[in-house]
Amino acid sequence: MSVDPETVKRIARLARIRVDQDELAGFAAELNGILGFIEQLASVPVDQVPAMTSGVDLALPWRADQVTDGGNPEIVLANAPGRMEGFYTVPKVVE
């Protein structure tokens, strides 16, 4: 599999990262280098192998379904780049 500049443009869009036209070829070359390196895994037979989905053999713990924190809008909003009346602000989404 090989990544072309159009594919870089598509995945950059999916990742919401602005990549300018003149950067596409460079990223495509770097990504192909990495994908070429990981391609070797395709030859390993893994059909009967279970996937390891966690670094530790531990069932997800349960806890009581109750509120344990909250009510601190100042703390939550303290680092907001834009805020108004206790809310985050973003560019207008609805016309």
Binding site: R16, I17, R18, N79, P81, G82, P91
Partner: peptide, 22 residues
């Protein structure tokens, strides 16, 4: 670019995301 850290403005929400992360 909404809750903390850098924000680079954009005309739309998606543009703001892309500019900030770019």
């Amino acid at each position: 670019g909404v809750r903390f850290g850098l924000r680079v403005p954009g005309g739309t929400l998606d543009e703001m995301y892309e500019n900030t992360r770019g």
